[in-house]
Nucleic acid binder design. Structure first.
Length: 566
RNA sequence: GGCCCUAUCGUCUAGCCCGGUCUAGGACACCUCCCUUUCACGGAGGUAACAGGGGUUCGAAUCCCCUUAGGGUCACCA
């Protein structure tokens, strides 16, 4: 029986809506580009009553091994992208997604299937064994480059007689299998890019099975898309010309052809490709700018440090990078979905913004949710050109979403964010204090991180608070006459006399003082107060700030400030 | 370098397929002013683009060609 005829119910798919798939190689983290591809695939299929499936392309043994290889599933889940079929994943709430009738969904577990089809092609003379060593191929490639010619495999192995091939195989000579590509131009049909014709000879006899027995990407992808009944392949534009290879394979195997759509790349503002190495790049730049020769204490081990600085290809692991970033006071560029989560972005905002990079619904609409995306997403409106990822606009969207949500939701989300990323911060606050802080922070927050980032004064011990030495601080405390510190000293007794330490009561006292001594200019006392209790010139409204701190703490800080600065 | 693709404000984009309604619209960023106890938020205004050159046409951001620029791809990676 030929494997082709064994392909299960391949007509059944047509009636049930489109089937799309997201097929990344294994990774612990989901890259934003991948996230957008997944989002589009998901929206396209689901919005049309179809199915979205997930498949892990782990055919490169060198690159895929460890248990965290599908760590990115949590990122997809966080974004709200679920899959009808694919690897099983247990959500935080205990429910399970994934599974399905076309598994396994890890290509490394499907070797038998690929081999059946590869054997078929070899039998039919549509593929052949090749014994060229990597060194030989490399030399030929170099020669072609030197001669300014495009390298194409020269079909050396095709000149071998069947007997020679047999002998080589028997002798255990390492062999790959190559696809024998028929002569002729190939026209790719793409719903986003339109048609493109590759001239005859452009596609050479590419490898479909590697020496280690694993199929190459090209082969596995074609077989699985057929077997998993995928109808629409939406993937990054870097795969565009690969499509020709896939078409050759589909023809050789007698498979139907899915519809293709190639999505534009998302790049950095400077046009470079967004890469996980950008974090290391930012860190290296900071190290250089500060002229550091040794790692800041408590960040990166010396040995690791030397290795990292010495080789641009070495990447710091996540925790090291994080510690170093904090020590150097640099903000790491967010690249992966979980970077954005850590930075306090909302999943619905990330989805919205990602969708806007490369697609738009028109009619000046740009704020929308995934339900809308499902309803409206279509291929003709997908942009053909690469989009530069604009973090400022993302931030603005996030700000709108946060300040626009009701208070209870904000409090819940910001607490959850803190529990995950700033437990030590939370520990230092009572429930009341946290609630007051959250109330005071909501309307000025652009991310869930802002509360934690901008209010270090809350968690610093009263006797550890240090006052910034900056122009603004000096202006508030020491300039003019009377000076800020003088006013503070004057205000101290009445503040101390406040009974119920509530924002409104404090405000009454301070306002009274300002009316009497500052011609009503409350800023004249508010700023010195702020500096005294927070160490800097930025905080939530001063009366909230004082209330959150509590009377004892606030008075202690004022006293300490006065004795230090005055 | 070969092949393929693309080209509207600084950025994301609407408009292009079905030429006139485009002295090109929106959003982010930027600038000015207002609000204001700091920082933000908010409000009002403003600067800012059809890559260049040829056609076609009464008329082109919209159609065609060339140039230029950018991107992708040329692996036993995906």
């Amino acid at each position: 029986m030929s494997p082709t005829s064994s392909s299960p119910d391949s007509n059944a798919a047509a009636s049930a809506g489109p089937v799309t798939r997201f097929a990344p190689s294994p990774s612990g983290h989901l890259h934003v580009g991948g996230a957008r591809t997944a989002l589009f695939c998901w929206a396209f299929a689901r919005g049309r009553g179809g199915k979205f499936l997930l498949r892990i392309e782990d055919t490169d043994q060198k690159r895929s091994s460890d248990a965290a290889s599908v760590g990115f599933l949590k990122d997809l889940d966080w974004l709200g992208i679920d899959w009808n079929e694919g690897p099983e994943f247990t959500r935080p709430d205990g429910t399970i997604v994934g599974g399905g009738p076309h598994g396994p969904y890890f290509q490394s577990e499907r070797l038998d299937i690929y081999n059946r089809y590869i054997d078929q092609l070899v039998r039919e003379g549509k593929a052949y064994f090749a014994f060229d060593t990597p060194e030989e191929l490399d030399a030929k490639r170099k020669a072609a480059t030197a001669a300014k010619l495009a390298y194409r495999y020269d079909r050396a192995a095709l000149k071998l007689s069947p007997a020679e091939v047999e002998a080589n195989l028997k002798a255990g000579k390492p062999a790959v299998v190559r696809c024998k590509v028929p002569a002729g131009a190939i026209t790719i049909h793409d719903l986003i890019l339109g048609d493109a014709t590759l001239p005859d000879g452009e596609v050479d006899d590419f490898v479909i099975r590697k020496v280690d027995g694993f199929p190459t990407y090209h082969f596995a992808v074609v077989v699985d898309d057929e077997l998993m009944q995928v109808t629409h392949v939406l993937r990054a534009q870097e795969h565009f010309t690969n499509t020709a290879k896939h078409m050759v394979l589909q023809d050789a195997l007698g498979f139907r052809r899915p519809t293709y759509g190639h999505l534009p790349i998302i790049s950095n503002p400077d046009g470079s490709k967004m890469s996980k190495r950008d974090k290391d790049k930012a860190l290296r730049a900071a190290v250089q700018a500060k002229g550091l020769t040794a790692p800041p204490t408590g960040t990166v081990a010396q040995e690791r440090w030397t290795k990292w600085l010495g080789d641009k290809n070495v990447q710091l692991d996540f925790d090291d990078a994080l510690r170093l970033a904090e020590a150097l006071d640099v903000t790491l560029p967010e690249i992966n979905v979980d970077d954005f989560k850590r930075s306090g972005y909302l999943p619905e905002v990330v989805c919205n913004f990602l969708a806007l990079n490369g697609w738009s619904p028109g009619e000046n609409v740009e704020k929308f949710d995934t339900a809308f995306l499902q309803q409206r997403f279509d291929l003709p409106r997908v942009q053909k050109t690469a989009a530069k990822f604009d973090r400022m606009k993302l931030l603005a969207f996030n700000c709108d979403a946060i300040t626009g949500m009701d208070r209870e939701r904000y409090v819940k989300l910001v607490r959850e964010h803190g529990e995950r990323y700033h437990p030590e911060f939370l520990q230092r606050l009572t429930a009341d204090q946290f609630r007051m802080l959250a109330d005071a922070s909501h309307e000025r927050s652009k991310t869930l991180e802002d509360l934690y980032k901008g209010n270090r004064w809350v968690v610093i011990a009263d006797d550890k608070l240090a006052w910034e030495d900056s122009k603004n601080v000096r202006k508030a405390m020491l300039d003019g006459s009377p000076r800020g510190v003088d006013r503070l000293r004057e205000l101290q007794p009445s503040l101390n006399a406040v009974g119920a330490w509530l924002a409104a009561d404090i405000e009454a006292v301070v306002k009274g003082y300002a009316d009497q001594h500052c011609e009503g200019q409350i800023g004249k006392v508010a700023q010195p107060l702020r500096v005294a209790v927070t160490g800097g010139t930025v905080s939530p409204p001063i009366f909230d700030t004082l209330a959150i701190l509590g009377k004892a703490s606030a008075m202690k800080r004022i006293e300490r400030c006065l004795s230090t600065m005055a």
